[in-house]
Amino acid sequence: MRKFKEVFIEKSLLTSALITILITLGIILVLSLEAVNFFREVPIIDFLTDTQWTPLFTDKHFGIMPLLSGTLLTSFIAIAFAVPVGLSISIYISEYAPRSFRKSIKPALELLAAVPTVVYGFFALTVVTPFLQSFIPGLSGFNSLSAGLVMGIMIIPFVSSLSEDALHAVPNSLREAAYGMGSTKLQNSFRVLVPAASSGIIVSIILAISRAIGETMIVAIAAGQQPRLTMDPTVPVETITAYIVQVSLGDVEHGSLEYRTIFAAGITLFIFTFLLNTFSYKIRKKFREKYE
């Protein structure tokens, strides 16, 4: 009897774990089934090469490029801001800061990641954009610069926290070796520790990129809803995620082509983040073996 109970419990626990695989399968199935329906009507070559995205207009175009460029532009701005700052923070906290300071500053920084993104969107729209407009005259009310920068603030803790863990995991013997030869902390950090922790740091950057690409509310609120193929950070753009929100807010009929566009956009987004996540997982796996 006891044996039976144990087996039953184990099977139930296993089932719960297997549900996570069902979720992934569900995501892939849902996205690809609707996307397949979409591509029956829109040739995939148009989807990839057309430079306009106007599914909600009478003159319909279904080129993903403008949405993709909007996504990449805002993400690039966010990363260009968050990586140098986040990495500097991680080096400062791991190598320079007194231990007591380190203990209190880490949760404080993680608070930045806890703020809901809709709040960041409001911040970008009502504080950062007007501030930037005061010295960038041509800046539009909706723009990728402000959205990207605020998104950068949001992902700073992703970069700093994981990089700091990686730096911290470098064996102390390397630190001592470098100090023992007369390195300053700065030389030790950049010549010895950062190279030694490079895999962990790369993982943190990849995860930050993935996070930026999938971020929705900040860009939906502050970057605008005008899909356009541009690298100009001062004009309104639309990201993949913002487009999905835009359609979801409207009254789009289930089964219509417009409805299916959000799944075509969704699967594009999913493929990007899936590749980035898988890549970072591989590196992380290798990195873990190195130190254990």
């Binding site: 013997s173 390397l174 001592e176 070796a177 100090y179 023992g180 030869m181 007369g182 390195s183 300053t184």
Partner: peptide, 17 residues
């Protein structure tokens, strides 16, 4: 840093970079 240049150190476990 100058001091450590003058006073070198070898550690217990080999710790090459």
């Amino acid at each position: 840093e100058q001091l450590r240049k003058q006073v070198g150190m070898v550690f217990q476990k080999p710790n090459p970079f």
